[in-house]
Design a protein around this nucleic acid. Sequence first.
DNA 1: AGCACGCCGACT
DNA 2: GTCGGCGTGCTC
Length: 833
Amino acid sequence: MAMLELWEDDTGSGLEDRTFFAEIILPFSLPKTFTYRVPVKWNSLLEKGQRVIVPFGKKKFYTGLVYEVHESPPPDYEAKYIHSILDEIPLLDKNHLKLWTWVAAYYMANLGDVMTAALPAALKLASETQVMLHPEAATDNQELSGQEKKIIAALAGAGQLSIREVQEISGLKNVFSLIKALYYKQLIYTSEEIAQRYKPLMKAFVKLHPDFQEPEQLNDLFKSLEKKAVKQSDALLKYISSAGNTYEWVDKLLLQKENNISAAAINALINKNILVSEERRTDRLDQYANDAEELKLHPFQQEAAGKIRSLWKEKEVVLLYGITGSGKSFIYFELIKEALEKGGQVLYLLPEIALTVQLVGKLRKLFGKKVYITHSRFSDNERVEVYQKIASGESCVVIGARSAVFLPFRQLELIVIDEEHDASFKQQDPSPRYQGRDTAILLGNIFRAKILLGSATPSIESYYNAKSGKYGLVELPERFDGALLPEITLLDLGDLGKKKRMTGSFSSPLLEEIEKTAKNGKQSIVFQNRKGYVPIITCKSCGWSAKCVSCDITLTYYKAQDHLRCNYCGYSQKPEKSCPACGSHHLEMNGFGTERIEEELELMLPSLRIGRFDQQSTRGKNAHLRLVQDFEDHRLDVLVGTQMLSKGLDFKNVQLVGVINADQLLNFPDFRSYERTFQLLTQVTGRSGRRKEKGTAFIQTYKPLHPVLQHVVNYNYSKFYEEELGDRERYHYPPYSRLIEITFRCKEPEQLEEHALLFARSLKQSLGERVLGPQTPYISRLKNYYLRRILVKLEKNGPSPAKVKQSILVNLETFHKDSRTKNVFVSFDVDPG
DNA sequence: AGCACGCCGACT
DNA sequence: GTCGGCGTGCTC
């Protein structure tokens, strides 16, 4: 434990004779905080929001966070002592703890889950078991297995190893039991050590020794070096030219690289005490010089910014609704500039950080060094540095995905949430399952910061909030620079089929237009929202179809790799030659994925250069960028792709967008499907046409009268919204509700069915209309279990999640007593809405 | 997250 | 007969 800083005794504060206890959050999914005793010497030192090291379990030590300090000793156990304090100044203040508490309660997560999500891994230190050879170990006269000998040998070589390292070196699987055995034989001993995980980056700097700074002395020095050490004299000269005549500190590596001088020459100068060297702490974050580009707004953008400013006087949140290409970003930039001028911090939230190169570049040109980014791709050390920068209270803009809401802001002035409707603001998988957008709004409220939501296709809930007056609304109905919106046409697949005007997936009008567009030197985008070659393989004689062994989802066939894969879990297998159910060889490929569309198009229009843009074709490190570049530089005429095409790409020369089949989108079994379809089609078709040229978009469909498609064609967002909301209310899905998901799990489907139905009935008696289901979930099977789900809506003004959960649990208990079903398991989760 | 305890299958 | 699989439960 030598690495831990120990604090000085704290006597004379008047608190010496009192005993304090602290509620500590531990970084695991545990339902409560744990009570630890505060050593008397830290009575006045310990504060809420500090990180501490505490013993937990039999021997481990973990980083915990002080949630509360009080004086009530726990009644039925002896509290352990806090081992040490990690932050003298609390890392988090009451604002952040308020956010954590809110997230945990609102999304039914544990505080530990929130802590795990909120703190960079390098700030969560934990002890590791170190293994050492016992000094008096008599290795020779003991009977040891080969595996044990291997471990002893490894330890003899290294002296001390962590269990992890032992595992890596020995390559053994059962290290833990072997170490235990060796421990009992008294051949080794163990201890717990806490490793510092954040390592500051050290850089060497050099400077001319003060003894040589006078001109005559320097002259003498050069004279003596010129004869025997030409390289050194040269190096010294280079140093002087970059350090200037005040002989400043110069980055040693940079000096070497830029002037092509060897490390040996500089080291020799250091050894001779001609140069002085010093290791200095530097940060890893990109530091860009401020190019100080002037921000110029068009009058209509000025006007919109003005409207936003005045709405902020009454409302915390403003929704900026502007179609693709309407110039939203410059309005963000203007408001960011103002926030920075006030000395505040700005959070710029984006759904996914991957496709933001253009944005980051622009922000750096405008705000230079004040721009920081956080990524999931950033290293632990880099994340800690961004975290510390924000915690220092420095005025800056941080660009980040949803988890950036947990950064330790001090002076938060503005939050911009771009592409507000995007589903990836929702964290679905590990708890806390939270909606990043809504959490950001709460964060803004806590800090009294202004909040700006932006989208070309707002989510139903935000649009509703804006229309109902909860948020301010600013609309940009026109395209920037007077550019025209594309003309969207629906092509009736049924009708065109009857008239024999279809070739494979392509209707004649679409095909002709693609050809014409290429001839005119313009580009086309073909949108098909399915990966792979075919999404389903079925048996013609018995109806069997290839499904994933664990997910109950049909397997997609990928032609390039000649295998079937589950798009949900990634399971893959070789395609069957005959039907495994009936033995028939009549296996049929149904439907079209991007691979197959690309292949068809290549056959029909062989003279065109066609590319494919989906997860497969963009997998490699730079494949994605290269493909985008190829298309941008017009080395391709057509780009076939999935919904990846809708994300933030801006192709200037695209004249035509073709949607292969809109029905697939309309059939997606999810209650947000129409909204998503509307958004996706609006975004994709919006990629067509720029500047003064009007674009064209064709949507092929069997349902040309479908209201969603009609609204897309007419750019009729409000109308779409009215109908959609009406529908949702009819089906008891208000657009903004969170749902408690009660999942029943059982190996016997009949038993599960019966159990879930009965339970839902009894739950409906106490909770009424809020209970939905049992649903047939999209994934109905998981490994060898069958799943059934009951949903309970959580209304904004209804009882709290905890209360609702409590009444569900009470119900469940009585239900279990009555029905005696023991092999049906129940778990709880939240859909963050 | 660890780690202990406890109960069933394939092995020296 | 035992090792070792992971399901369950506890940690202040």
